[in-house]
Design a protein around this nucleic acid. Structure first.
Lengths: 246, 246
DNA sequence: CTACGCGCTTGATCAAGATCAAGGCGCATT
DNA sequence: AATGCGCCTTGATCTTGATCAAGCGCGTAG
């Protein structure tokens, strides 16, 4: 998360910096559109949107990482999604935010006015298709997370989280996902706990245990060195033969 | 679940029974289309699709209830979705099933050939939009379930499940969701456990406890009478003021 | 420099839910 | 009627992770 997914380029038509190539959407460009309203920035840790807020816009994350979370009255909170560059916040036909959105790193979003955006969906089917694909991918991710939350042990949860981050990092860098890998955890222990349905103490203990067992090494609190990704994968409880089937 | 969501009507053009009005999709008709391949039926308890199966079709549930589930090698399983009439199985652009699909009641699905279906998405944008909406609704449901799995106690989980079923039932029957309500649980204790991330013993114990505390009454194993839905709602840990915000 | 706060670690204890085990009820088959 | 099976309940015990508590390291504000 420490390296930008986006290259920007200047545009002669308007004063806004435009996304040129996004690593996740394969060069597709959605943002040079009439319906762009404005860009907006948030600093790490800032609450971007509160559950219940009125949303008169649809936003797309341009840079940075944000989280979606839900909270119960007594304060128990569960993270339910990560928002990465190219992900959308808000949705057509619903104007109250159902989740709390928090910036994890510094975040820039590109906001579309709701009405024009909805019209766009009708006039430009490929945008709708792209959104459908993204929604289905998120649904798959959410379901994988349900397995983790419902059935995995604390150690498996932590291992899964580290493995997922490592895998995404290596994918981004187009490296082979094997051998020694090092990643920087973009989350505090507490955020990890919220993500995994654990307490921060348990997260800390399990990380220490993985370290003691030589599965991972630590450099400071956040940087994790994985001597062998395969070994870590064995701790996740996932199918060993090659991750997701599809 | 014991009453059909669908009215059928005969069609003079072809030998297939067509859906006339579906309670969930508000009368919309998707199925009288060139791309229909065939209807298929499954009996309660039957496995419809296994994770890893090749899927050369996209199906829509016409009648009955099915579940989506994921399994770890050692047998731990987690249900990740309920498939109700009008829900889709399979998706454009992916031809290996990622989940295990099991019929809970007798199920009828309507299968579309994959290719024509994908073409349909391009030529008929409103179908894509409908799918997008459905995917986003499922995503919301999945996220609510993540909160349940990650942060709720066993008692809250069971209460939530019963409340959800009750609410859906009363919605279907267009009744006020308050006062005395009775529902038939469409799941075995084991299926409930798989849904809630619990063991079947815990499910059984918590149901007994709710009964002892007068929150619910039982008639046989499956029929639940809820003297006061509000009281049950208090056990779910959810926001009391009116369920989902949106 | 000192004090404070934040993020993290570690220890001691507790409790919720899992696990292991036995038995009950309803129902279909013989 | 007897048998067996699927589904459920209940009890005894164990384990995992939560909770409560103390303290460390580091950056920053005063």
């Amino acid at each position: 998360m420490n390296q930008s997914l986006i290259e920007y380029k200047e545009c002669s038509d308007c004063p806004i910096r435009h996304r040129a190539v996004c690593a996740r959407c394969e060069g597709e460009e959605l943002d040079h559109l009439e319906s762009i309203k404005y860009y907006r920035s948030y600093t790490a840790g800032q609450s971007m949107i509160w559950a219940g807020d009125r949303m008169d816009f649809v936003a797309s994350v341009i840079e940075g990482v944000a989280t979606l979370s839900q909270t119960m009255e007594d304060g128990r909170t569960q993270m339910v999604g990560l928002l990465l560059p190219s992900d959308f916040i808000g949705r057509p036909g619903r104007d109250i935010a159902p989740y709390h959105v928090t910036a994890i790193s510094d975040v820039t979003v590109c906001c579309f006015r709701k009405k024009p955006f909805e019209e766009l969906l009708v006039t430009t089917p490929q945008i709708g298709q792209r959104l459908l694909e993204m929604a289905l991918d998120e649904l798959d991710a959410a379901r994988e997370w349900m397995l983790l939350l419902g059935r995995k042990t604390a150690r498996e949860k932590i291992s899964s989280l580290i493995a997922i981050i490592a895998r995404r990092d290596t994918e981004l860098k187009a490296l082979l996902p094997s051998g020694e890998v090092s990643v920087v955890l973009p989350l505090t222990r507490e955020a990890m706990a919220d993500y995994l349905g654990l307490t921060l103490e348990t997260v800390s203990r399990q990380i220490s245990a993985l370290k003691k067992d030589g599965i991972i090494q630590l450099e400071g609190k956040r940087k994790v060195i994985i001597p062998d990704l395969e070994t870590l994968m064995e701790e996740t409880g996932d199918d060993t033969d090659g991750g997701p089937l599809y």
